[in-house]
């Protein structure tokens, strides 16, 4: 059949938004290559509405394996499910989210299936002459972009950076098939046992946030963090931090943005007291709009910012927060 497949994700039965971003990617490729777009989804007690939503948003076919063994992400059963689909449908292209599960699952599958895999792509295209998938990803901390292809092995596999593309829109009246497969025998076996899920105390997911206020060493001490939270609250933003701040124990590691932390591409990125070390810039420079406040006019962060205030953050933030809050009433 040689179609384009996405590995959709679900959390507690609900289809996750990364799936719809993958559909956007898949639709663009399918339009160029004329192939069908299919989605695979594994889990337990998956809501039917979610399956229909995959179709509404662009999938021509959804293949589901719904079984108690697939309730939580476990690399062995999940990879066996994908391998089953690879064998059955022989896809040309398989795309998954560069999420914690996608970045675990796809390499596991690619190795076993003996095919190439490109990590964390930000752009995809089809090479007109060959019909091959062109996979573009940042390298060396975002200083370079590399375009990669996989000419001789199938499927061509890639993980796609979350939030690097909008979600595919609903289109009323789209039709497609929903295909239920039974759990493959090999997928009943796992040497990893899921024990429990501990949600992050603070309800947030940096990579999902549309707006992030990010704090650097300029904040001087943990006691000053409420100022940052106040700004974030006023803007409806999540709070992130540089490595310097994490290393000092002022915020926990999930807040870290940069080469040794998370890569984020929010719509709005507000850098407060961040000098802009190359390792940090690597994790944020593709954000849509970047604003920075720093006392050093030569700070590197200004090189990637759209707007910058050169000044003392302790003098700038209070009136800014005040004004944003005041504006709130006018909305």
């Amino acid at each position: 059949m040689n179609d384009i497949w996405i590995v959709a994700e679900q959390h507690q039965g609900k289809v996750a938004s990364i799936s719809f971003e993958l559909l956007t990617r898949g639709l663009a490729l399918a339009a160029k290559s004329g192939q069908k777009l299919c989605a695979m989804l594994f889990g337990h007690n998956i809501e039917d509405a979610g399956l229909q939503e995959l179709i509404d948003r662009g999938a021509d076919m959804v293949t589901v394996i719904d079984s108690p063994e697939l309730k939580d992400f476990l690399v062995e059963p999940y990879s066996q499910c994908i391998l089953e689909i690879l064998q059955k449908y022989k896809p040309q292209i398989v795309l998954a989210g560069a999420t914690t599960s996608g970045r675990t699952l796809l390499p596991y599958v690619a190795m076993t299936a003996h095919t190439g895999l490109t990590a964390d792509c930000t752009e995809l295209d089809i090479e007109p002459e060959t019909g091959l998938l062109l996979q573009t990803r940042p390298a060396i901390g975002g200083n370079l972009m590399a375009t990669i292809k996989c000419p001789d092995f199938r499927p061509q596999m890639a993980t796609i950076r979350p939030r690097s593309t909008p979600q595919a829109p609903h289109k009323k009246g789209r039709t497609g098939t929903i295909d239920h497969l039974t759990l493959p025998e090999k997928a009943k076996f796992s040497r990893i046992r899921f024990k429990r899920f501990v949600p992050e105390e603070e309800e947030f997911n940096l990579q999902d946030a549309e707006r992030i206020v990010v704090v650097g060493r300029g904040i001087k001490k943990a006691e000053n963090l409420p100022l940052i939270r106040e700004l974030a609250d006023a803007l409806g933003a999540a709070v992130g931090a540089t490595r310097e701040v994490i290393d000092r124990g002022w915020l926990s590691y999930p807040h870290q943005i940069g080469l040794s932390g998370k890569t984020v591409t929010p719509k709005f990125y507000f850098a407060v007291g961040i000098s802009g070390a190359i390792q940090h810039l690597a994790g944020m420079q593709t954000s849509e709009t970047i604003v920075a406040v720093n006392s050093d006019p030569e700070a590197q962060i200004f090189q990637v910012a759209d707007f910058g205030i050169v000044g003392n953050l302790f003098e700038v933030l209070p009136p800014l927060i005040e004004k944003i809050k005041r504006g709130e009433k006018a909305w």
């Binding site: 370079l144 972009m145 375009t147 292809k149 996989c150 092995f153 759209d306």
Partner: peptide
């Protein structure tokens, strides 16, 4: 299995006000 076909500089053009 994979081949690097092109390496280029990202065009992040920002002019900071």
């Amino acid at each position: 299995p994979t081949r690097v076909v092109k390496i280029f500089q990202p065009k992040v053009v920002r002019e900071c006000r």
